[in-house]
Amino acid sequence: MGRVIVVTSGKGGVGKTTSTANLGTALALLGKTVVIVDADVGLRNLDIVMGLESRIVYTSMDVIDKHCELSKALVRDRRVDGLTLLAASQKNNKDDIQPAQMKAICDKLRSTHDFVLVDSPAGIERGFSNASAGADEAIVVTTPDVSAIRDADRIIGLIQHARIEPINLVINRFSPELVGNGSMMDQADVMDILNIDLLGIVPEDTGVITSTNRGIPLVYEETSAAAHAYMRIARRLTGQQIPIPDLEQKGLFTSILNWFTRKS
């Protein structure tokens, strides 16, 4: 039986789709069978981020309306074995799908895949209840700024209420430089506020933008910092014990200070 994991956030635009695409691909590269499900009905993006937009014929809406079999709606990613995508309908809106229907789809998918990753729309409304309906686990994505963290806390409350656990946190767009000079909260600050387990930290990386432009998830070329981060997170998801590296970059001043004040 596979694991159904919803990738969600309170605030929009913090990197759910980027994370779903890269984690799904990374898990497949690690030899797992994976289906990534776009639950952002009406605002679908996972297909274009994955570079599969031209190959979508059927969506989850067609499966629900019994226009096609679930297996027929899964688009195979030809670049890696074991990775498929279930797209969201772009013509419908979130109210056209019931949580129970999403749950039925997830339950079927879990019997044939190791991982079912559900890319949720932002927010606390219907889109979230649909996306999380079939999930046993959640990954909450946040950026290290005040509004995203506040909204993350709100969504964590809802996930706990729905009795979905474990809930793991991914901190995205982390800037070692800004943390080093004191303008961005570090991982300890964020963990202290949100109080859930940390799954990983993804640095700010221009490679994310260029890879999205090309429709090739970053993890295919494991060279950039964000690609490494996503590969490590995927390994943790499979149960490997991989320590979370300290990304903080000490500025010159801090380094000198630390040298003078270091503990022996």
């Binding site: 909260m185 600050d189 506020i193």
Partner: peptide, 19 residues
């Protein structure tokens, strides 16, 4: 004071209230 510590303090307060 570092703006990150101000952010953390403000967040802690507002989240306690939200919760």
């Amino acid at each position: 004071p570092k703006s990150s510590s101000i952010a953390k303090q403000r967040l802690k307060l507002v989240i306690t209230q939200d919760r």
